[in-house]
Write a protein that binds this DNA or RNA. Sequence first.
DNA 1: ACGTCAGTTGAGACGAGGTATCATGTGATA
DNA 2: TATCACATGATACCTCGTCTCAACTGACGT
Lengths: 146, 146
Amino acid sequence: MSALPSSSERLEDTGYRLTAPRRAVLEAIAGANRPFTIEELSERLPNIGRATVFRTIKLLQELDIVCRVPLEDGGVRYERSRSGVHHHHLICSECGSVTEFSDPALDAAIEQNAATADFQIDGHSAELYGRCAACQRASQGPAPAP
Amino acid sequence: MSALPSSSERLEDTGYRLTAPRRAVLEAIAGANRPFTIEELSERLPNIGRATVFRTIKLLQELDIVCRVPLEDGGVRYERSRSGVHHHHLICSECGSVTEFSDPALDAAIEQNAATADFQIDGHSAELYGRCAACQRASQGPAPAP
DNA sequence: ACGTCAGTTGAGACGAGGTATCATGTGATA
DNA sequence: TATCACATGATACCTCGTCTCAACTGACGT
């Protein structure tokens, strides 16, 4: 719901203008109940230029207001990020749902590997692909037609 | 060096034809000393159609002869895969080098998270971005001209 | 050795996703 | 409320990858 107030403040605090198109994009994002593509967003906002949608999403990524979800096939979706908390994704290849999780043990393992290789780590990504619980249940329960 | 014999055998064993263009792509890959883009590969093989290079790389990915390296900016490179062993990447954002590592603890942490979420995992990716040891040394040691 | 033919190729059209350009519009400040 | 840097929209353009289809060619059987 209220992803808007803090987001718009963050825009202004960083010296960016809070314009009508940006407000519209923020509202559309706040209203999205699942990760979205730029194209989907753009369709929902027919009065706003495609380029502006791209520019705004790029900006919001830099401000950690939205985050990029890389898909297995090379495609990309975006989602509102939960208050800048670092997390990873469980991506269902059947229904496309994306679940977040964070795990200190996983991050620690990653940092351990970087340290061993004398690698100065800036960032990392970890995505898990497979089938979510709901999709597993759907194909197990009532025998579906083959 | 000898990535060729086993790779071409693997092609034939799987029922694919070992054609001249495929052989040329395999040789170019064997001769690459760092992860490459399709475009780079295509430039090195001016007699081979771009579409064929794409098709061949796709095929070699399926056969686990090359693997995809997703970059931080959304771009992609490819590299010969080490004998099908599952691994992750340390990707230097300064010099572009890619180092592989594998870590059972990391994979275990990933599987643990999937299990907790009742998620049936098919595959996962984990990439670490930052600066490699060499690039860190280069900017610390002898003061370079700005 | 050679014919056969399904698998493969190359050229180029096409499409998705994203960026660059530039004249015009507009939010925040004085 | 005037100003002007910042932001926008339309559109051209670029990159990366796939599709189409006629022509070609490896692998196999004879």
